[in-house]
């Protein structure tokens, strides 16, 4: 049993620089893999809806009529599932966390290409 076991550590802490970061004056820690928020390249999206189906938080909604891809940042859990499953790799994970907001809402992105409705099964067989 010892006394003043903590003294050494405590003294060193007083004499050393703080272990914390003065956020937001100083930038937060980030790594190349950090999951911040999902971004989309609207030109490449084929509106297949995979990201919407694979989203565990149901944050993504694709509207083929309105030609939009929308995400609710407050629902998104940044799991990277959509980025992994996107067949055309048009989704990316940005390392920057999404900015704080004062109101809830969805972010709507207009997409250019909309996948045409599947032709009847008979036709695809003849071409393939």
């Amino acid at each position: 049993m010892t006394f003043f076991e903590m003294t050494k550590t405590a003294l060193r802490t007083i004499l050393s620089r703080p272990a914390t970061i003065l956020y937001p004056a100083q930038a937060a820690k980030k790594t190349g893999l950090s999951r911040g928020h999902v971004t989309i390249d609207p030109a490449r999206c084929i509106s297949c809806g995979t990201c919407q189906r694979k989203c565990p938080a149901q944050a993504i909604l694709i509207s083929k009529e309105a030609k939009t891809w929308q995400i609710d940042r407050f629902r998104c859990v940044v799991c990277n599932s959509c980025v992994d499953t996107c067949p055309v790799k048009c989704l990316f994970m940005d390392t920057q966390y999404s900015a704080p907001a004062t109101a809830k809402g969805v972010e709507v992105v207009a997409i250019t290409y909309v996948k045409p409705v599947k032709p009847p099964a008979g036709k695809t067989e003849s071409t393939g």
């Binding site: 272990a19 790594t31 893999l33 950090s34 999951r35 859990v77 990277n80 994970m93």
Partner: peptide, 19 residues
Amino acid sequence: RERVLDVFEQTTGGRVIQG
């Protein structure tokens, strides 16, 4: 503990939820 969290972020991308 911060050191451990840093390792998590560097290897998985998440500090608390690794995924």
